[in-house]
C-alpha cells in the first residue's frame, strides 16, 4: 500500500461509466459439468510448492541411493534385494521401490490426497469453488482424479527414474531375482510394471483415508499426518504375529506382496488378496468421504 497506483482511491470514472452503461444482467450459460475441469485443477496443483518438492525428492532419492552404494562398496550376505541392488538397472529400480514403498511413497500419496481439499479449506478458497458453484460430488471427483493421478505418477516415476539412474550407475544388466535366476529386459520391464501396478493398488488405502480426512478437517497437516499414522499403527500391529489370522485384514498386511512378482514365476495369490483388502478399505473410506462432504456445512 505504498505506491500511488496501489492506493487506488481516486475515483475511476472509467469503471463507473462502464458500470453505468451496463445493460441489465442476463442468466449466464452455465453448465455444472464444465466446472473445475481437470486441466484447471492440474494447473492449480502442479504450481504448488509441495508438488514440486515431492517431485524433487523422488528425483534426488535414487541418485542418493546410487551414490550410497558407490561409496559403500559391495555388500555381503544373503541373496537379498539390497545385495542385488547394484547388479543392474532393474535390480536397482526394484530396491529403490522396496526401500520407498513402506514410508516415502505413503507420505507422498497421503500428501497429494490428504492435502487437496483440506488446503482449499485452509486458504478459504473452498467456499468460492462451492459457491461458484462446483457441485460437491463433482468437486471431490475432479480433485480425487488429479490427486490419484499425481500419486500414481509418483509410484511410477520412482522405479522408472530408478531404472534410468541405475543404468547410468550400474549398467543395464538383466534383473536377477533374489529367488534365483535372471529376467531378460522385456521380462524385467513386465515385472516392474506388475510391481508398480500393485503398489498403486495398495496406495489406494492411504489415498482413501487421506482423502476422507481431507474433507473432514480444515488442516492439511492433520489429513496427511492422520493417514500416515494409520500406516504406522497398522504396521506395528502387523508385526505381532500372535494376532494371526486377523493380521491379514490389516490395511498394510499385503503391502509388500509385489515381492511375489519377483520369483521365477509370478505368484498372484497374495497380490489378489492384497488388492481385495485395499479395495474394500478404499471403497469404505471414499464412500464416507462423499457422504460426509455432501452434507458438510462449509464454515471455513
Amino acid at each position: 500500500m505504498s505506491t500511488p497506483s496501489e492506493q487506488g482511491a481516486p475515483t475511476r470514472t472509467g469503471v463507473h461509466e462502464r458500470l453505468a452503461a451496463l445493460s441489465a444482467g442476463a442468466p449466464p450459460a452455465f453448465d455444472p459439468r464444465r466446472t473445475l475441469r481437470l486441466r484447471v485443477e492440474f494447473v492449480r496443483q502442479l504450481k504448488r510448492r509441495r508438488t514440486q518438492f515431492a517431485a524433487a525428492v523422488l528425483l534426488v532419492l535414487p541418485i542418493l541411493i546410487a551414490l550410497a552404494f558407490k561409496i559403500g562398496g559391495d555388500s555381503t550376505g544373503g541373496p537379498g534385494l539390497v545385495d542385488l541392488a547394484t547388479t543392474g538397472a532393474a535390480n536397482f529400480a526394484l530396491f529403490t521401490e522396496f526401500a520407498s514403498v513402506g514410508f516415502l511413497l505413503v507420505v507422498i500419496v497421503a500428501l497429494f490426497c490428504g492435502d487437496t481439499v483440506a488446503s482449499e479449506a485452509n486458504w478459504a478458497s473452498l467456499r468460492y469453488l462451492l459457491a461458484m458453484p462446483v457441485p460437491r460430488a463433482r468437486l471431490l471427483r475432479q480433485k480425487l482424479i488429479v490427486a490419484l493421478t499425481l500419486s500414481f505418477a509418483a509410484n511410477l516415476m520412482l522405479p522408472a527414474w530408478g531404472l534410468l539412474v541405475g543404468s547410468f550407475f550400474f549398467g543395464g544388466a538383466p534383473a536377477r531375482s533374489p529367488l534365483g535366476g535372471t529376467f531378460d529386459f522385456t521380462e524385467s520391464l513386465w515385472r516392474l510394471a506388475i510391481v508398480v501396478a500393485y503398489a498403486c493398488g495398495q496406495s489406494l488405502v492411504v489415498a482413501a483415508l487421506a482423502f476422507l480426512l481431507s474433507v473432514s478437517v480444515d488442516n492439511p497437516l492433520g489429513a496427511v499426518g492422520g493417514a500416515t499414522l494409520l500406516v504406522v499403527v497398522s504396521n506395528i500391529i502387523d508385526s505381532i504375529t500372535a494376532l494371526d489370522p486377523y493380521r491379514r485384514f490389516l490395511p498394510t498386511h499385503f503391502q509388500y506382496s509385489w515381492l511375489d512378482a519377483l520369483g521365477p514365476t509370478v505368484s498372484w495369490d497374495d497380490m489378489m488378496r492384497g488388492t481385495g483388502v485395499a479395495l474394500i478399505y478404499a471403497a469404505v473410506f471414499f464412500a464416507i468421504a462423499w457422504l460426509r462432504f455432501d452434507r458438510k456445512d462449509v464454515t471455513s
Partner: peptide, 21 residues
C-alpha cells in the same frame, strides 16, 4: 449446495480465499 442458479450470484463471504502461491 451446488444448485446451478448460484452461477447467477457473485459472492464474497467472510474474507477472501485465494491460492497464496
Amino acid at each position: 449446495p451446488g444448485a446451478a442458479v448460484l452461477a447467477r450470484l457473485g459472492a464474497f463471504i467472510e474474507g477472501p480465499g485465494f491460492l497464496p502461491h
